[in-house]
Design a protein around this nucleic acid. Structure first.
Length: 873
RNA sequence: GGACAAUUAACUCAGCGGGAGAGUGCUUCCUUCACAUGGAAGAAGUCGGGGGUUCGAAUCCCUCAUUGUCCACCA
């Protein structure tokens, strides 16, 4: 028997342990089965479970449970990401507290501390996923820096290098002066900021007035090596080729012509700093300009900055502006709002800097990756995200993959200490192929975290070894991820899979939205509006949290989360709990089998409805429309099963007719069991807890077969008749409420059938659910005079004998309103039918339906009028 | 500057060519033995504005408005 109250805490942990003990999560290679694979987006080892994780992993778990129950060899492969920058920042913070720095303890010791940190905290989020109910195959738990993944990283690096797709070069990159590392383009976040536009005069060497340039970063002038104007700009045509004197510095710089310059913007003259601006860098390349780097790795002016050396970039800016003003070179200052790039980890303003880094050549990789999505081989859900993907892939620039950090995959490049020759290899070479030397120095840098994440769908399965797992489970079926990492991760997995496996990494990408707060704001640490999923689990249980995240969501759509919504879902789970309790209370030890010959109208209706819902849920699960599937189940359980079927079952259950009683119980159990299975992927714990108590149920619900549509549960005729009966019952209740009859007051019902037997079959429900004293059947209603109110329906009419309670005026008014409604419907149907266009062009079925409606309402109008005449209206 | 999305009941959202739906909230009634985390009934929306296509538009097309997001980054 179930406990009186639904208390998730009392069983969630026990059930999860039980699942683990039975090894239900473990995926076995089975040639008889079709594989279905999901690889988890590996959470950072620094991470704590937040709502985004909760949503994302609830979705994955629902999908994998659904497929597992369907009979697939379902693998959900879990793991964590070493999160290079994020983790390194944490370790550095920790060191700082102890008064230490990276440099003080050295690389080896630093890595030791980092691994310790990983051991201590890296498993935290895994435990949190377990409390959410995630059915990951923990025996395959991976880590981006474990031996397997590291081996894949080295393999891929060497392969790409040998193919010429990885190169080392001095290019302009995004530099974070705080993290002191290079970043890829994707790691820069732009934000609008108020700044200034400083107009500075650069005089000509020959004593002419020169030009005025405008800049937002005056400190970069220390590295200027030219001024550019548009070749078509008549204003400056005479200056092209002339020499200017760089103020404060005194360097002679040329005026060059380059079409990059926009004549309309600013003064039409652009100072060119090849070492500190991406566009200027390109201009510099075209004109062979000198590249003078004036800032060091900390954003401090270096020896090339002359007297400004040692000043931080902002101090230098202030000082330079002052001096320009003093020497009269500063023409004017304008306020200027512009976008400034920031580090996505520490939010420091990015400094574009020329630096020697490792890059992946993107163009040859992007082509096939675009094609895989364009051809539909990989499908994005929803499709609109494909456009974002194409836009990025088609304009992609080479990917800067080296990071000046210690925590991560160290670049497998070795430099000969004797001749400087570079060897890229998985292991340190013993002999230099160039000079025969034996001493090597490995590259100091590590790889971008996303370099290893890009290999995740196959590195976790054993690549480059040809493992059985890789052969069986790759490519994976669906990737579930938030849309904000489409560039960081999704795109890179696609080209990596194609390049290294020769196959797409996944067939579908299901994008999740952002979880927002009740006001629609993004949940964030700084706003302090985040809700901790662990607190919700603690308070309401994991099932409730899962259902409140899954119910009603749409692929790619953001969702609002509020405790109010959570309460609603808790109430729903509680409802299911109590409905189950009701069924189990009435069930004995034996397992009754439903007997189709004894099915009542209500039985057939609920089985038909269950069948419809089963079909809809299956279809929506196939399409990854979990939100719709959840909503269908919610409605079915609450409205159809609880509000109606259980109520209809009660009179039989409490009655004397033993076979009827047994059969009703059998239907109840059968419907409940299938419903539990259908909703198990959403709320796994509570469904398991209930399932275990159902007589005759064996094993775990999580490995039971997922219900499919059944031909022997189709009763369209009876279902429709039952719906009519339900409609009449609703009308009876409504009528009593409107006429001011207390709900507890039992009335006599007189029923007149319109030639069928629906009311005869449903008389029990009319009596119990309509709260009648007695239900009698009449041939016609003439004998009821004015002592009864009437409910008309297509199949039969119900007269409620109210004796003196009937208020003639009220009943007349009610009938008049009903007639008005029926007439409106009749007119609408007739209007359509008299529309030549409709009759000639609409589908025949629709026209027939409209004709039927017209007839039905015409008949109804007559009945109502007859009744009104009888009342003397 | 470009792209994408949203705009439906007080709130949160479904519906996406054939009669406006749900949940929450609100109003009234009901403690009957699964559940008051409940039951019954009800009020509530010219489906953002304007055009168009169609026999028929919340649904398709155009346009405008508002909101949000992403990309680009003209110094």
């Amino acid at each position: 028997m179930l406990e009186k109250n639904y208390e998730p805490k009392s069983f969630e942990k026990r059930i999860y342990d039980d699942w683990m003990e039975h090894d239900y999560f473990r995926a076995e290679i089975d040639p008889e089965k079709t594989p279905f694979t999901i690889v988890i987006p590996p959470p950072n080892i620094t991470g704590q479970l937040h709502m985004g994780h909760a949503l994302n992993n609830s979705i994955q778990d629902a999908i994998i449970r659904f497929r597992r129950m369907q009979g697939y060899a379902a693998l959900w492969l879990p793991g964590t990401d070493h999160a290079s920058i994020a983790t390194e920042v944490k370790i550095v913070e920790q060191l700082k507290k102890q008064g230490e720095t990276k440099e003080m303890i050295g690389r080896e010791e630093f890595l030791k501390r980092a691994y310790q940190w990983k051991e201590q905290y890296g498993g935290r989020i895994i435990e949190q996923l377990k409390s959410l109910g995630c059915s990951c195959d923990w025996s395959r738990l991976a880590f981006t820096m474990d031996e397997r993944c590291s081996n894949a990283v080295k393999e891929v690096f060497v392969k790409l290098y040998d193919k010429g797709l990885i190169y080392r070069g001095s290019r302009i990159i995004n530099w974070c002066p705080d993290c002191r590392t290079a970043l890829s383009d994707a790691e820069v976040e732009f934000e609008e900021e108020d700044g200034f536009f400083w107009h500075i005069r650069y005089p000509a060497k020959d004593g002419g007035e020169g030009v005025v340039v405008a800049t937002t970063r005056p400190e970069t002038m220390l590295g200027d090596t030219a001024v550019a104007v548009n070749p078509a700009d008549k204003r400056y045509a005479h200056l092209i080729g002339k020499t200017l004197i760089l103020p404060l510095v005194g360097r002679e710089i040329p005026v060059v012509a380059d079409s990059y310059v926009d004549m309309e913007f600013g003064t039409g003259c652009v100072k060119i700093t090849p070492a500190h601006d991406p566009n200027d860098f390109e201009v510099g390349q075209r004109h062979n300009l000198e590249v003078i780097r004036v800032m060091d790795d900390g954003g401090v002016i270096n020896e090339n900055g002359g007297k400004f050396r040692g000043l931080d970039r902002y101090e230098a800016r202030k000082k330079i502006v002052e001096e320009l003003k003093a020497c009269g070179a500063l023409v004017k200052i304008e306020p200027h709002r512009h976008n400034v790039g920031h580090c996505y980890r520490c939010h420091t303003t990015i400094e574009p800097i020329v630096s020697r880094q490792w890059f992946v050549k993107m163009e040859p990789l992007a082509g096939p990756a675009i094609e895989a999505v364009r051809s539909g081989e990989i499908r994005f859900l929803p499709k609109r995200f494909e456009k974002i993907y194409f836009n990025w892939m088609e304009n992609i620039r080479d990917w800067c993959i080296s990071r000046q950090l210690w925590w991560g995959h160290r670049i497998p490049a070795y430099y000969c200490e004797d001749c400087g020759h570079t060897v890229v290899a998985k292991e340190e070479p013993s002999v230099c192929p160039a000079c025969g030397g034996h001493r090597f120095r490995q590259d100091e840098d590590v790889l971008d975290t996303w370099f290893s994440s890009a290999l995740w769908p196959f590195s976790t399965l054993g690549y480059p070894e040809k493992t059985a797992d890789l052969a069986y489970f790759y490519p994976t079926d669906v990737l579930v991820t938030a849309y904000d990492i489409i560039f960081f991760w999704v795109a890179r997995m696609i080209f990596s899979g194609l390049e290294h496996m020769g196959k797409i990494p996944f067939k579908k990408v299901l994008f999740t939205g952002l979880v927002r707060d009740a006001q629609g704001r993004k949940m964030s640490k700084s706003l302090g509006n985040g809700i901790d999923p662990l607190e919700i689990i603690d308070k309401y249980g994991a099932d409730t949290l899962r259902f409140s995240l899954l119910n009603g969501i749409a692929p790619g759509g953001d969702t609002r989360f509020s405790e109010e919504k959570v309460e609603g879902c808790r109430n729903f789970v509680n409802k299911l709990w109590n409905a189950s309790r009701f069924v189990l209370m009435n069930a004995g030890e034996e397992v009754p089998k439903p007997d189709p010959d004894r099915f009542t109208l209500a039985d057939k209706w609920i089985l038909h409805r269950l069948n419809e819902v089963t079909a809809e849920v299956n279809a929506n699960m196939e399409r990854c429309e979990l939100g719709l599937a959840g909503a269908k189940l919610y409605d079915f359980i609450w409205s159809d099963f609880c509000d109606w079927y259980i109520e209809m079952a009660k009179p039989l259950l409490y009655g004397e007719d033993l076979p009827a009683k047994k059969n009703t119980l059998a239907v109840l159990i059968s419907v409940l069991t299938d419903t539990l299975k259908l909703i198990h992927p959403f709320i796994p714990f509570v469904t398991e807890e209930i399932y275990q108590k159902i007589p005759g149920a064996s094993g775990s619900i999580m490995v039971a077969a997922y219900p499919a549509e059944r031909e022997d549960r189709r009763y369209p005729g009876e279902a429709s008749a039952m719906e009519s009966v339900m409609e009449v019952i609703r009308s009876i209740r409504n009528l009593k409420a409107e006429m001011g009859v207390p709900p507890a007051k039992k009335l006599n019902f007189y029923v007149v059938e319109h030639g069928g037997d629906a009311a005869h079959k449903a008389s029990l429900y009319l009596e119990k659910l309509g709260n009648a004293a007695e239900v009698r059947f009449l041939k016609e209603a003439s004998e009821l005079s004015g002592q009864a109110a009437v409910i008309n329906s297509t199949l039969f009419d119900v007269y409620l004998a109210m004796g003196e309670l009937v208020d003639r005026e009220k009943e007349l008014a009610r009938l008049a309103a009903e007639r008005k409604n029926a007439e409106a419907e009749l007119n609408r149907a007739r209007g359509k039918l008299s529309n030549q266009g409709f009759v000639s062009k609409a589908p025949q079925a629709l026209i027939d339906a409209e004709r039927e409606k017209a007839e039905k309402y015409a008949r109804l109008c007559e009945q109502i009028e007859e009744k009104m005449r009888a009342l003397g209206g």
